[in-house]
Design a protein around this nucleic acid. Structure first.
Lengths: 134, 134
DNA sequence: GTTCGTTGCTAACTATACCAAGCATTATAA
DNA sequence: TTATAATGCTTGGTATAGTTAGCAACGAAC
């Protein structure tokens, strides 16, 4: 009752081998932002259940529908197309449109692919995990 | 055998899903080009069966997968996006959203310290150096 | 007439996306 | 300790996308 601020339990990370591309990406995006499965579920307006999101991240779903991908793209603030591509929808056949310029200028975050962003965020989380919380 | 349970001789219009805009569009596209269901099936490399195409045109399928839509878009020589839109995948409104999305919104950039930014930049360069230019 | 051959269409079935409910674990509070 | 809450994850089930096999109606040739 008394509103003690609980801290989320930390789960041990398991290394279950090579993750599916989309699953790993989604997991990285979520954890890098510090969201829980249920937070994402709510952020999508209950359009994506936490159970299903878990299955997605574990690579147990082959081809999630674009509806789901779009919701997640909004929540994670990544381009919809990159998720579609990872899901195997957008043919990588010399895709010209999805292939966007990469400037590589100063902090060209606009040009980050979702993959790169996920890696960066993961790395940032790693950096910060070594320092006391602010 | 085959006693009285015959189907009505007249092919009558079943009023099932008149509001399936996608179905009507697909039917129009096909008939306008003089294709038969089986011709389209073959034109898609047997990726879309004639039976399923019939269901699509009759509006019996709610949301065909993008794979199917892309195949049909190629066969009918129409933009993929229009079929996606008709299928209800791409949001019709939202104005000119698709161009550039805001990125990293959840992970405020101003939250980065100078050291963190520098480290991320170096890491980004490292990431990109490992991948051949796309 | 009776065969073919083609048309659109449907029934029956399989595969799987997706959810509701719950479980195991961890952490905090009493 | 025990209770409560929050986490990731699994299980059982339902809805539906998509296929294979086939049917009835229409011709054209025999």
């Amino acid at each position: 009752m008394s509103n003690g601020t609980r801290r989320p339990p930390q789960r041990r990370k398991r290394f279950d081998g090579p993750r599916s591309q989309l699953g790993g990406l989604l997991a990285d995006l979520r954890t890098a932002r510090g969201f829980t499965l249920r937070q994402v579920e709510e952020a999508t307006g209950n359009a994506v259940s936490n159970a299903y999101l878990s299955q997605l991240e574990k690579g147990r779903v082959q081809q999630p529908s674009p509806n789901v991908l779009q919701r997640l793209a909004v929540v994670y603030a990544v381009p919809y197309e990159s998720l579609m591509e990872k899901a195997g929808y957008l043919a990588p056949s010399d895709g010209d449109e999805a292939r966007k310029h990469r400037r590589l200028s100063a902090f060209a975050l606009d040009d980050l692919s979702a993959e790169e962003e996920a890696e960066l965020l993961r790395y940032l989380a790693f950096i910060r995990s070594r320092k006391p919380a602010r």
